[in-house]
Design a protein around this nucleic acid. Structure first.
Lengths: 341, 341
DNA sequence: TGTTGTTCCGTAAACGTTTACGAGAACACA
DNA sequence: TGTGTTCTCGTAAACGTTTACGGAACAACA
């Protein structure tokens, strides 16, 4: 089954050097020799051995993405990344690169897996997600001189790498603006750990907008939970027990909102009627929930494509004009108004 | 940064052969030579180049899993697999194997990507999911003699491979039993394409149980939709317009149920009050939905571990006693009774 | 004829490992 | 002293590629 370049050479009675050159489209090979090689390759079902090629070229032609279940949540994972990965893979494939996703264990913060990928040279570059405010992965990669790009910002690594993020800060502010314009002044925020940079940004925007409207930020209206259904469920009652009850809640994401709405329902509070609800990162769940939840929709697949482009531009082997090396982009989050606020 | 076995040898003034033997724990190397090598390896931050090793050994020490967004759904993907992959990766890591997930484009049915992985020898074995009733991927792999295992059954490939599946047929039947015992006789089923084997199995169990109870199967109460929120939303009204309205609906999975409940809500029908709802594959969403949805919970992470074990047992390099080669297991689905039925 | 250039191809080294083979040293034993 | 055994290590080949280099064949031109 496994036919090598030697098989082709023997079959055609030419040297392996010529076969390789023909396969790789080099100029110094006769046109019909090339054709014969190509035909034979098809006939013998030839495909280059990736290990041999990588070894010789010092490049694997593949990009690694690290996927990891939420800490504290082994039940279900993050559907968020699938469309992003689809876009990423599509663009990388255009340049002949494979995308491989390496799974990490739930708790280990990826450090070990990352080292393993880098040191055993399993990939030519890495794409990071779930960036933390201070992110040791980024420090490690910059210090090791290994190419990478991130989905999400961080303060680590001197920002000398391509990164693409969503404007969670603006979304947080927009959510507040919208609620205030509808008469709300007691607005709660349910967020994940501030260590997660998007959580930090969301709350930063939320605070800023409140102040702009002359509303004092009440710490009792901000609560932190695990970034899943259980987190929202546990934490939402806490803000509802504040002296002066909130009339609106902004949730970081769909899962937290789902858990939160469950808690509200158990307290006899109906989202969309008795309280306004907005979620920052919109998903199909928000759309099909009853009431349909107002949220901000990210363009995940285009983002995947774009980050691939930015990463490619930073790789010497693919770089275009020198000027376009490091890029940092922040994409807007589009408000989808529905029934919950 | 990248230190090779030659660097170690030069540094210690011994031959690369000895270094390699020391690193690989072979017997014919002096105890303190080994210790010196190990120390130097740590000091020089040595990690074996994966390409070199694979090339020499003819094995990559990694297993591939194919992940692919739903056809017709580029918005969000399948969180189902994350805990499964976590279990898979954990068990594989114990045997020194890496798990890589290769992303496919949404439409391409994986055939091309699969060929690519196999022919370029990027992995030593493959794990397949979303098995179809007749699955050309399985045919291809068996015919190519490439090791693999599947999450889900199929009729393809002569069953000469390890596979692990959930008992969707029994779950379908159990759901019917439960509903009948609560007085329902008009029970609808919302399913995905019958080509997806779990969809087929679920409906088979549903039909069988109905007949056992002497209830005629009404084709008007079975509807097919995309296996996502939109699918459930589109298709649910169809069964509700049957002459003799159903009093209960069984949904294939959470996303379809979410869409279906939305459609019901718009018709003024309240799940748990006006109609009973059960979903086959339970998720946290079911638990936190209002009303909480009765469903059947799979043990995803243990399943990942188990399938890894079965796959390992089928690989010559890892096989234990010869007798334990091909295994096929079907795991039960545990009913979680909640408020929706 | 001699020189120069072009086109095409073969040779061989190199990438970083693992491993079969053999050899030197040390030791045991008669 | 001679023989055999054991321990330890070095040598070199091999895995499947890519590619620098050089050479053969031929054409063009003076």
């Amino acid at each position: 089954m496994a036919s090598s370049i030697h098989d082709l050479a023997r079959h055609l009675n030419i040297s392996i050097g010529t076969v390789s050159r023909a396969l790789n489209g080099r100029a110094d090979v006769n046109a019909d020799t090339r054709q014969r090689v190509l035909d034979a390759a098809k006939q013998l079902n030839y495909a280059p051995n990736q290990s041999g090629r990588s070894l010789r070229q010092g490049a694997t032609r593949s990009i690694a993405f690290m996927l990891q279940p939420h800490p504290g949540d082994l039940e279900y994972g993050e559907p968020f990344f699938i469309p992003f990965l689809t876009g990423l893979q599509a663009r990388l494939a255009e340049s002949g690169l494979d995308l491989i996703v390496v799974m990490g264990a739930p708790g280990d913060y990826q450090q070990e897996r990352l080292r393993r990928v880098v040191e055993t040279r399993r990939a030519d570059a890495v794409v990071l997600a779930w960036t933390r405010r201070e992110d040791e992965r980024i420090d490690y990669l910059t210090q090791a001189g290994f190419p990478f790009a991130t989905l999400g910002r961080s303060r680590s690594g001197g920002m000398a790498y391509p990164s693409l993020d969503l404007d969670f800060e603006k979304a947080g502010a927009d959510a507040v603006d919208r609620l205030v314009s509808r008469g709300h002044r007691r607005i709660a925020a349910i967020r994940p750990s501030l260590d997660l940079n998007f959580g930090h940004l969301f709350v930063a925007g939320y605070r800023k907008a409140l102040r702009r409207h002359g509303i004092e930020v009440d710490p009792g209206l901000i609560a932190e939970g695990f970034i899943n259904e259980a987190g929202g469920y546990q934490v939402t009652p806490r803000v509802m027990l504040a002296k002066d009850r909130p009339t609106a809640i902004i949730f970081n994401n769909d899962a937290m909102a789902l858990g939160g709405c469950k808690a509200l329902a158990e307290m006899g509070i109906r989202p969309g009627h008795d309280i306004a609800v907005i979620v920052i990162v919109d998903t199909p769940l928000c759309r099909y929930f009853s009431p349909a939840l107002t949220g901000f929709r990210p363009a995940l697949e285009p983002m995947g494509k774009r980050l691939a482009e930015m990463l490619l531009a930073s790789l010497p082997a693919f770089a275009g004009p020198e000027g376009t090396r490091i890029m940092r982009e922040v994409w807007p989050l589009e408000l989808i108004a529905r029934d919950s606020d």
